[in-house]
C-alpha cells in the first residue's frame, strides 16, 4: 500500500462498498447495449423475415417482397473461398510456430501475425483491390475471398499454435520412437490430438469474417443478380445490409433488419458451436 489509510475504518468500508457497487453498475451498462441490440433485432428482423427472404432475389425499388437468396449464397461462397485458403495456411503456420517455438523467426512470425490481426479491415480491402482487382480491372468473388482469407490467417495461426502447445510433448516423442517420420508425427498424432481445439479456432475465425463488410466493398463489390462464378462480383449479406440500410426506402430498411438478424444468427450459431460442441478433451493418463 502506497499510503497509510487515514480515514476511519467505517468510512473505508463504505468507500469499498461504493466502488464494488460501481463495478456492478459498469457491468450492467456494458451488457445493456447488447440486450437492446439483440431485442430490437429480433423484434424488427423477425417481423420482416419470411420464407421469401431465403429463396427470392432482391426486387427493384417500389416493388414489395423480395429476398436475399443471392447474398446468402454469396456469403457462403466467400466463406468457402476464404476457408480453403485461410485454414491450410493458418494451420500450417501454426504447426510451424509450435514446432519451432524458441527460434527468432518464430517470434517474428508470431508478432507479425498479431500485427496483421490488428490491421483495419478496410486497409486489407484496399490492399486486395490494388493487388487483385486493379490488375484485372474487374471485381470478383475470388478477390473478396482472398481478402477475407488474409484476415483469417493470423487468427487461425495463433489458435492452432496454442492448441498444439497443449498436446503433451511425450506423445510426439512416443510417435518418433515408433519410427514415425516427423511429418507423419505432426499430422497423424499431434494435429489429430489438437483437432477439437483447432476446429474451435477455425469456427471462431469463420464467425469473425462472416460478418465483415469493409474488405468486400471493393473486392466482391456486391451484385443484384444470382451469380456463382468466382470471377464475377458477388453479393454478400453484410454488403446487402449496408446498401439497404443507407437507402431511403422503408421497404429496404425492413429487409436490412431481416438480413441483420440472419447474419447475426449465423455468426452466433457458429460461435456457439465453437464454444460448446468441440471442447478439447485432454484428460487422464498424461498431463
Amino acid at each position: 500500500m502506497s499510503r497509510p489509510p487515514r480515514r476511519s475504518i467505517r468510512g473505508r468500508r463504505a468507500r469499498s462498498a461504493v466502488m464494488v457497487g460501481l463495478t456492478v453498475v459498469a457491468s450492467i451498462l456494458a451488457t445493456l447495449p447488447l440486450l437492446l441490440i439483440l431485442g430490437l433485432l429480433i423484434q424488427k428482423g423477425a417481423s420482416s423475415l419470411s420464407w421469401d427472404f431465403f429463396t427470392a432475389m432482391p426486387k427493384p425499388v417500389g416493388e414489395t417482397g423480395g429476398g436475399m437468396a443471392n447474398a446468402i449464397l454469396g456469403t457462403v461462397m466467400l466463406i468457402a473461398i476464404a476457408s480453403s485458403i485461410g485454414l491450410p495456411v493458418g494451420i500450417g503456420a501454426g504447426l510451424y510456430l509450435a514446432e519451432h517455438r524458441g527460434t527468432k523467426f518464430a517470434f517474428l512470425v508470431r508478432f507479425l501475425s498479431d500485427v496483421l490481426n490488428g490491421l483495419p479491415s478496410i486497409v486489407v480491402g484496399i490492399f486486395a483491390w490494388q493487388f487483385l482487382v486493379r490488375p484485372v480491372k474487374h471485381f470478383s468473388a475470388l478477390a473478396g475471398g482472398i481478402a477475407l482469407a488474409a484476415m483469417m490467417i493470423p487468427l487461425v495461426t495463433r489458435t492452432t499454435e496454442e492448441m498444439i502447445r497443449l498436446v503433451p510433448a511425450s506423445l510426439r516423442e512416443a510417435a518418433l520412437a515408433l519410427g514415425y517420420p516427423r511429418w507423419r508425427t505432426s499430422l497423424t498424432i499431434v494435429l489429430r490430438t489438437a483437432l477439437p481445439g483447432i476446429v474451435t479456432g477455425a469456427l471462431v475465425a469463420v464467425a469473425r469474417i462472416a460478418g465483415e463488410t469493409a474488405p468486400l466493398l471493393f473486392t466482391a463489390f456486391g451484385n443484384q443478380f444470382w451469380s456463382t462464378s468466382v470471377n464475377e462480383p458477388i453479393s454478400a449479406l453484410p454488403i446487402q445490409i449496408f446498401t439497404y440500410a443507407i437507402s431511403p426506402y422503408d421497404e429496404w430498411h425492413s429487409l436490412a433488419w431481416a438480413g441483420a438478424l440472419v447474419l447475426l444468427a449465423l455468426v452466433l450459431v457458429i460461435s456457439l458451436v465453437a464454444r460448446f460442441a468441440t471442447r478439447s478433451r485432454f484428460r487422464g493418463g498424461h498431463d
Binding site: 491450410p88 495456411v89 493458418g90 494451420i91 500450417g92 503456420a93 504447426l95 510451424y96 510456430l97 514446432e99 523467426f105 518464430a106 517474428l108 512470425v109 507479425l112 501475425s113 500485427v115 496483421l116 490491421l119 486497409v123 486489407v124 484496399i126 490492399f127 490494388q130 493487388f131 488474409a150 490467417i153 493470423p154 495461426t157 517420420p181 516427423r182 511429418w183 505432426s186 499430422l187
Partner: peptide, 28 residues
C-alpha cells in the same frame, strides 16, 4: 517436404504484411 510446406506457410505471414505495406505505399 513437410518442413518446406509449413515453413512456406509461416513465411506467408511476414510476406503478406510486407506485400500489403508495399502495395498500399506504392499506390499512395
Amino acid at each position: 517436404m513437410y518442413r518446406f510446406i509449413t515453413t512456406a506457410f509461416a513465411l506467408s505471414i511476414p510476406l503478406l504484411l510486407v506485400l500489403l505495406g508495399i502495395e498500399v505505399a506504392v499506390a499512395a
